[in-house]
Design a protein around this nucleic acid. Structure first.
Lengths: 102, 102
DNA sequence: ACCTATGTTCGACAATCGTCAAACAAGCTC
DNA sequence: GAGCTTGTTTGACGATTGTCGAACATAGGT
């Protein structure tokens, strides 16, 4: 299954930023920032499950999330501590940003 | 000439992140972070001047830079204070990031 | 007036991206 | 095992992106 989850050290900054530079993915990250694990299916933005799966893959391969497989479900969580260590202030800046513009 | 320079409040976070999520542009921002104004021509990365002009436009329209026209030259500077106010920690996190991977 | 220097704009191109429906894989339950 | 649930993978598509050379615009210098 592989579940490719790179070390943050091996991910170019631009890849992390690119992963965050999408509306759907940013909403996912904001939901994950509430803490704990979220099953993939609990993300209900206006996209198909194929698209959602794609975005979760992008986040995972950019080193932003960690995924745990449990039966047919997958539980995703934000790699907050690692991210804060590698890019102090990045997540806070992005998450507590100005009132989300339309 | 117009020199479209939006208010940071009007720029979606994702646009700021997208602007930073490119190798050439990140190098430009890193150069600008040294402080002061830089003439466009002083950026010598391996791209044509058309491409450089394009990247500077992206940065400007994402609210990251301010441009002053002087004769045939244009001087660019980072909107650091504004950025730090709107996204505290973002620039620092991106600029002082881990040793730039190849 | 010419020529040069500095940038921008205009196509054009290949590559990447976000999106979806459909097919697939794997586990759970009856 | 049949069927359902959860999620991924596979094409396909239109849109966007990064890149370039060529043409254009504008300001100085001689």
């Amino acid at each position: 299954m592989e579940l490719h989850e790179p070390e943050l050290r091996d991910v170019p900054v631009t890849a992390v930023l690119a992963a965050l530079a999408d509306d759907v993915r940013l909403q996912i990250v904001q939901a994950l920032a509430e803490g704990g694990e979220h099953a993939c299916g609990t993300f209900e933005f206006g996209v198909s499950k194929a698209t959602r799966s794609h975005h979760l893959k992008v986040l995972r391969e950019a080193g932003l999330t960690r995924t745990r497989v449990a039966g047919t479900s997958r539980f995703v969580r934000l790699r907050r501590e690692e991210l804060d260590r590698h890019y102090p202030g990045l997540l806070d800046a992005v998450l507590t940003g100005p009132a989300r513009p339309a």
